[in-house]
Design a protein around this nucleic acid. Structure first.
Lengths: 338, 338
DNA sequence: CGTTGCGGTTACAACGTTGTATCGGGCGTG
DNA sequence: CACGCCCGATACAACGTTGTAACCGCAACG
């Protein structure tokens, strides 16, 4: 039955409630004979622990929240799926929040949500100012996903965006391209991740002795297909348009491919394109997209582990900075046709 | 402070715990003067009700689960975002589960998850057999998303898949195409939604006097880009290949576009393509995709409303069958180039 | 033979909330 | 002036779980 409690099991097994509780959690010592009997009754009654009562007593709910800027963005959807899997492996459930990239919403979540049921939060902040974040009052265990520009008191999991961006740009340069554009430089104040990618891009250009033309790194409002298409459109309207472009994510790249097509520009012959994220659709686009593939599974595992450590350790333990891997996946958008 | 309880508020306001509880929920009568005083203290202490304690007492947690076959599938990600928004509007939170399309997992979820914390479940079953579902024991309030072939005792929200599929096929026929293929017919036993779409496709062919060629509706393992590409590949290898194809979702269509490109087949000139779902990427693919756009917002609203009614009404209330709208969006993949 | 120690078990209280029953006092009525 | 009534507020118990401390019987030890 659905509504069976420790008490029911205890009565039927002829032991005390606490003994059943001990068996369920495998904590204290229980004689083998007793354990077997209890386990049998548990199976018979299909006993399921009541999460709320447990939480009320222990302060642990086994629920963590994952807050992403946009769930409809394929990268975050893929990441969310990985986080759910990683959490399940560790016996907890994930509650997904969609901040819409709104800083107020992000702060609300960093402060523990409306819901005090949450054990901890994985936050992928888009625009949230790091200093505001550092000053937050309610200290819900928190792990940040993504690079941070400032030193802030929180664990975070990241990939080496600068190195990855440099590798992507190097790849374009190695094809002999010299007018290498970048799409993803934000109009206003910079998101830390973006800064890193821009930095990697500039470093690669510099190392190759290619001067940086600011017109090749147009301002980009958002990380969407539309914005990518608009930026590409503008780049192709230049007197001396680029022969390669590094897009800061795959959505931008997807929009860029689309715009190139509209202009009759051939990819990769006239324009080589590299993205970032390796979302699934990039393998099937026309042409398929060369992209930096962050190890999403690794990010999820590291993040969930870090959060669980933080939950156990309290706010005092030192903050960690964990780095996951990445890989440049070369596909048609930078490979000469056969 | 974070940890303030009814008791703290009560002491500070000089009233009993129960009075504070009454003020918080606005249930029983409280004198205006008392209410004001209590509200002021609540604000001062930033009191937040403890969800677990409340749930323990009332049996309501304010958390509903949404179970989808694959969160990484853009359609489900977009739907999930809509559901989260609809639930937030009604003051509850959504816990997302990824069943991986596994019938056992789907059944587990339909039976109330491992987590009895959940008030109710929105389930989008992929392969779960309806009769098994009807026989489930634990009656967690449940609303199904998607068409059901059998009469089963559960609320469900759907769109008229047969009519939508017919409209999509009619559109292809109206372009003068006569060898209209369909991608999405499953190999094994049929998913209800798929049956409906197949039915709509056949109805349209029949109404137009076009004979049905079974070779034009190849078996499809999964609803993925890869499967779409494979199916299209097979179709284009026929002696008399199709001049149009209706794909049962946008992922299949995306794969089909990709395969057409690989074969040097031009879309829409040589092959017109229609998808289903209207996921965002379909607006930006090359060529952009004509597709059936279900009203995802409407589906989410209807589903959450239905679930909340079910939670309130108990298992006894009659089951409802709610229909959301859809729309055929015509884009480049069926529109002659300018 | 009494004491100590220990493995196994139990009783009890608490977590924060809400439903039920009760209480007190001011008011209108007989 | 005594009575009953109703509004507003309160005390208490319960929801299902777990931490703490106590308990019991038995073996080993002094």
């Amino acid at each position: 039955m659905a509504g069976s409690r420790l008490k029911d099991v205890a009565e039927r097994a002829g032991v005390s409630i606490k003994t059943v509780s001990n068996v369920v959690r495998g904590e204290a010592k229980v004689a083998d004979r007793t354990r077997e009997r209890v386990l049998r009754v548990i199976a018979e009654l299909d006993y399921q622990p009541n999460a709320s009562a447990r939480h009320l007593r222990t302060g642990r709910s086994g629920i963590i929240a994952l807050a992403v800027p946009e769930l409809v963005s394929p990268y975050f959807a893929e990441l969310a799926a990985q986080v759910i899997a990683a959490a399940k492996k560790r016996g907890c459930t994930v509650l997904i929040e969609d901040t819409g990239g709104d800083p107020a919403e992000e702060l609300r979540i960093a402060c523990g949500l409306s819901d005090p049921l949450i054990d901890g939060v994985l936050l992928s902040p888009l625009r949230l100012d790091e200093q505001v974040l550092g000053a937050r009052e309610r200290r819900v265990p928190l792990v940040l996903l993504g690079e941070r520009s400032y030193e802030i008191p929180a664990d975070h999991v990241l990939i080496d965006n600068a190195a990855a961006a440099r590798e992507a740009t190097d790849h374009l340069l190695s094809l002999g391209r010299r007018r290498v554009a970048a799409i993803g430089q934000p109009a206003g104040l910079a998101h830390a991740t973006t800064v890193q990618r821009m930095h990697g891009y500039l470093t690669a250009l510099h190392a190759a002795g290619v001067p940086h033309d600011p017109r090749l790194a147009p301002d980009t409002r958002e990380f969407t297909r539309r914005a990518g298409a608009e930026a590409m459109h503008a780049l192709l309207a230049l007197d001396d348009p680029p022969d390669a472009v590094f897009c800061f994510n795959d959505l931008l790249a997807s929009g860029a491919l689309r715009a190139a097509h509209d202009h009759g520009v051939r990819v990769p012959q006239d324009l080589a394109v590299v993205g970032f994220d390796d979302v699934e659709e990039s393998r099937y686009s026309v042409p398929s997209l060369t992209t930096v593939a962050p190890d999403k599974g690794g990010i999820a595992e590291l993040a969930v582990d870090a959060l669980m450590r933080r939950i156990d350790a309290g706010a005092l333990a030192p903050h960690s900075r964990l780095t996951a891997g990445y890989e440049l996946v070369v596909r048609e958008s930078t490979r000469p046709a056969l």
